[in-house]
């Protein structure tokens, strides 16, 4: 086997690009989990809603793409806040199972709602960029720009968490909830902010996924489970761990798909996940 096989290198690069797109919902989920201590089981469905928003504004209303993107993010932020206020907040003191179940219910609501409004047809944005060729290796222009946008999003999030008061409070609250009021921090407000950011990350992920994936009401099922697995692999609530695990999973799936079919590469990725759970049950990067 020639490790310089251009197709293998292409698969490797595609894996990294794919990881960049996985990274956004992983960061969003981890942020919300770290702060609010609740898993949004319907996270992928939020992304799906965002994809429909962009598709509708661009393909039906004829808006410019950037405007559709710009509207999608705040919409999803609002959706995240609504999810928190209507479903999560009343359950903050309930057993974790109830929280997860309630957001699981929202998953059905969003799937059902999307089916009602948009039917089960696959909708495509129909935007494509020419591939780039570097030494016989073809890189999809859309995937590359999505990757770059994802990195920019992640970097902005990092700057926010590192250098702002609210961001620092978010990192602090993930470890110690009850002491926060003594710092003058209203946890309820931080929860809202985290939910809004979690929502907008779903919105950004939606924009980046829609350029490479058709949207339909069940599209969430195609990347939702893998998102959760990446989160667990990186350590739930651990942003950096999740970010790195996203790339690892992306490469595994893409390179796995190089030797077999995409489905087998997913089987392989999931098996890898389960094995990793047993080797590093608290996440790849847990201390």
């Amino acid at each position: 086997m020639n490790i310089f096989d251009p197709f293998l290198i292409e698969a490797l690069i595609n894996g990294i690009l794919l990881g960049g797109v996985f990274a956004l919902p992983v960061l969003g989920l981890n942020l919300v989990f770290g702060v609010v201590d609740v898993v949004w089981l319907c996270y992928a469905e939020l992304v799906m809603v965002g994809m429909y928003i962009v598709w509708y504004l661009y393909n039906q209303m004829g808006w410019p793409l950037w405007m559709a993107f710009a509207v999608c993010l705040p919409c999803l932020a609002v959706l995240g806040v609504l999810l928190h206020v209507l479903v999560v907040r009343p359950l903050l003191t309930a057993p974790p199972i109830n929280q997860v179940l309630a957001t699981g219910g929202v998953l059905f609501v969003l799937q059902g709602g999307a089916t009602l409004v948009f039917s089960t047809e696959f909708r495509s944005l129909g935007v494509d960029m020419p591939p780039m060729e570097v030494w016989e290796v073809f890189i999809s222009g859309t995937k590359l720009s999505a990757f770059i946008a994802a990195l920019v999003g992640a970097a902005l999030l990092w700057l926010f968490l590192k250098y702002t008061y609210v961001g620092t409070a978010i990192r602090a609250i993930a470890r110690d909830r009850e002491v926060m009021p003594l710092m003058g921090v209203d946890p309820r407000r931080i929860y809202l902010i985290a939910s809004a950011i979690g929502g907008s990350l779903a919105g950004l992920a939606a924009c980046l996924l829609l350029v490479q994936l058709d949207v339909h009401p069940f599209v969430g099922l195609s990347f939702g489970p893998i998102t959760f697995m990446i989160c667990v692999m990186g350590g739930l609530g651990n942003m950096l761990g999740g970010f790195l695990a996203a790339f690892l999973m992306g490469v595994i799936i893409s390179v796995g798909g190089f030797w077999g079919t995409t489905e087998w590469s997913y089987v392989f990725a999931f098996l890898f996940f389960i094995i990793m759970m047993f080797v590093r049950p608290r996440g790849l990067f847990a201390r």
Partner: peptide, 13 residues
């Protein structure tokens, strides 16, 4: 998991 200065920053929230 925060630095000393970051702890102070949370205190100045």
């Amino acid at each position: 998991h925060l630095t000393v200065e970051e702890n102070l920053k949370v205190g100045a929230y």
